[in-house]
Every structure is written in C-alpha cells, then in structure tokens.
Design a protein around this nucleic acid. Structure first.
Lengths: 219, 219
DNA sequence: GAGAGATTTAATCGACTGATTAAACCGTAT
DNA sequence: ATACGGTTTAATCAGTCGATTAAATCTCTC
C-alpha cells in the first residue's frame, strides 16, 4: 500500500506520465507546470518541489520513455542477422515509436533547446546512447563485410538518427500516414539490395553519344 | 522615397524579417508579438494591425524564406544531369539552408503545429511544393532509368524531405557540424553507386569464407 | 500522544502573453 | 486650410507563466 511517507513516489510518477502526455499533445509551447499538474491531478507547486522546475520534469519524462523504447528496440533488433532483417525489425519498432509519440518528446525538446543551452546539453547527452546503439547494431550485422567499408556503421548511425527525427516531423504533415508508409516501403525494398553497392562500377553505357569516361575499378 | 502613406510596406517588411530571426534564435516558445516587435523596432500592436496575429506573421516569414530558398535550389539544381551531380548540388544548398536557419523556421512551426490544427493545415500547404519540386527534379534526372523503378521519384522525394527536416534537428545536437558533414560525405559516396542497386542480385556466397561471388551483368 | 519529517495546499509575486482600443500622427488630395 | 485615411502609439484588459512561501496535512517513530 502507499503510505503517506512514500506517496511522493507516486506523485512523481503521475507527473512524469502527465508531462509526457502534455508535451506530446500540446507541444513545448503549450506545456507548463500548471497544464502538467492539471493533467496529473496534482498541485502545480509539486512540479517544483519534486523536480525543481518544468524542464527537469520534461527530461525525466524523456528518460522514462527513452529507457522503455530502448528496451523495445534492443529486444526487437536482437534477432536480426542481415541488413534486410534489421531494417524490417527497425521499421516495426519505429512505427511504435511514432504512434506512441516517443520521438515527438525528443524532437519537441530539441526544438525547445535552441534557446536554452543548458537544456540542449542534456538533450545531447540523451541522444548519444541511441547513436551508439545503432552503430553497435550495425557493426554486429554488417561489420567486416565490404558494405561496412562503403557505409561505416558510425556514419549510417548518424543517418538513421537523422531519419528517426525527420520521420517524426514528416509524420505530423502526413495525417493518414500514407507517405510515411511509402517511406518505409522504400527502405524495405532497398535494404536487401544494399550489398550491390559494393560491386565494381560497370562501364557506363553511352549516355548520349561519344565515348563516356571509362569508370575505373574501385580504389 | 517612403511616404507616410505606404510606410506600412516597410513595417511589414521589418516585421517579417524580425519574425524569422526571432523564431530561429528563440524558438516558437520564445516568440511573441512583443519580442518580434522589439526586434523590428516597432510597436507590438502593429503585428496585429498588419498581420492579424502572431501565427500569420510567422507564416509570412516562412513564405518569404521559402520562396528565396526555392529559387536558390532551382538554380543550383538546374545544371545537375546525374544523380551524383544532383546530390552534390543539393548538399551545397542544403548547407546554406541549415546555416541560414530556413529549415529551423520550418521545423519549429511543424513542432508548434501539433497543438494548432489551423496552423498545421497551413504548414502542410507549404510543404507540398517542396515535395513536388524534389519529385520533378528526380524525374528529370533519373526518370526512365532502371533506378527510377527501384526508387520512385515520389517516394525518394518523401525521403529527401524527411532527411531535410531531420538534418536540421540533428544539427542542433551537433554543434561543431562534424557529424552533419559525415552525413553529407556518406551521401556523396553512395550516390554515384546508386545505379548498382538495379543489378541482378548475385548468388549469396557462403557466409564465412570463399572467393567473391561472380557479379551478374546489369538487367 | 507528542514530535519529526516528508508532502501537499492555497495564496501570492512580478513578469509576460495575445489582443483591443481611443487617440495621435502625418502625408495627401481637395 | 481642411478633412480624409492609412498608420502608429500608449494604455489597458484578462489571463497565464515560473517560482516561492507559510501553513496545513498526514504517516511514522518514539
């Protein structure tokens, strides 16, 4: 049972939950100590008592969401042995991230951090584990292969996170999700063929007329 | 000379300029009629007199920036005849977009539009020309080629815009731009090889050792 | 049952917000 | 000179913001 003594834990819980919900549905500009507290059914002064301010509470909400999503991603991605399977697995969890609004938490805070250096530092801290995670996963799946020389896992990790953030914004402009799905479809069609990128460049067929510059073999 | 009678045009101009600047440096949450007016050196009531509110002014600022950037993109991209050249050209203008903050205007407004349906509708309207532009450019450059069957211009346009938005957020987390540059470098290395994606898939060699599989000829 | 201590509440502060208004301003056409 | 009309100004409105505070509440310990 919850005694009064540790009732603070439950209050913190409700505030974190409400903070995430408010940030997702109202955006950073519509998120205040009062709106969060109201959504949590709690006195607004408790935001400051328990978290010291609005931004720290929002970061706590991001942390909770981030940990949960990271667990989901790790689990889903663990079974992928090829790039193809990896993209397929990632897409599934991606979708859940978007629907659940986790990426919105992140990108709203990134947007808000433009004018708040101390907030930005915290956000950067929280982005790095995701970059590392993607990099390590890629290292496991394509590491050592010729593909990894053309697509260094670290760089692809940057690309994946960039995409991760972009898809979220794009989704806001794509109410029925058809465009987002087209995007996922494209990735699914390309991934199995990625290996082809490492082949030697074939001689270019005549583009219009005259002898085209001979394509040299790689390196 | 500016008569008093048409002095409104100059005021609108200064407000639009100041609105863009404020949104870029302070984010949507830090952008108000007063902060914009102060930056423009103008009375804050004029925001409402000339534009009817803060959001319409911000949209006007987005429109101005968008038109200017669209002109730059059209011009830069016009000379590109291959995917490789296209990516190279796009990257150059991309960089200018990021440095100049144009994408920030866009993504801040997308973020803010979560809780403002009428704002969102306006933003969507303004995203479509960009998608069309990318699609048409791709159609021109790779249309008809085998690559266009694997990478339909419309879908790639979605991907490019997604990337466009994502890079902006990513850049906020990448103060020294090294990661963003790594991203551009990756694109530049992959684009010239994209054609390889249309080759027939070679037989997979046994997963551990062996000589490289014989590459099949195109088509 | 008294006291300790964590938690919660309502009230309050100054600063800011979007928006409106009446009055003042000023070039221009009559 | 006068009056018109687009423009600008300062004042003002009610509402919200982050943050603080003293007092009240409640559980647990002694």
């Amino acid at each position: 049972m919850t005694t009064r003594r540790d009732s603070g834990a439950e209050t913190r819980d409700r505030l974190i939950e409400a903070a995430a919900e408010t940030l997702k549905t109202q955006g950073y500009a519509g998120t205040s100590a009062r709106t969060i507290a109201k959504a949590a059914g709690v006195n607004s002064a408790l935001v400051f008592y328990h978290f010291g301010g609005v931004d720290p509470l929002l970061l706590a909400a991001l942390d909770r969401s981030s940990e949960e999503r990271m667990r989901a991603h790790r689990k889903t991605v663990a079974g992928a042995a090829t790039l193809e399977e990896l993209v397929e697995a990632a897409t599934r969890v991606y979708r859940a991230d978007i629907e659940g609004g986790h990426i919105t938490l992140f990108s709203e805070l990134v947007g808000a951090s433009i004018a708040r250096p101390e907030l930005r530092a915290e956000i950067v801290k929280r982005a790095d584990p995701w970059i590392d995670f993607v990099e390590q996963t890629l290292e496991r799946v394509i590491g050592g292969s010729p593909l990894a020389r053309l697509l260094p896992p670290r760089d692809v990790a940057y690309a994946a996170i960039t995409f991760y953030l972009g898809v979220n914004l794009f989704t806001h402009l794509d109410a029925d999700r058809t465009r987002t799905e087209a995007l996922f479809g494209l990735a699914a069609r390309v991934a199995p063929r990625a290996r082809l990128l490492t082949l030697r460049m074939p001689r270019r067929r005549r583009p219009a007329a005259g002898a085209p510059a001979a394509d040299e073999p790689p390196e």
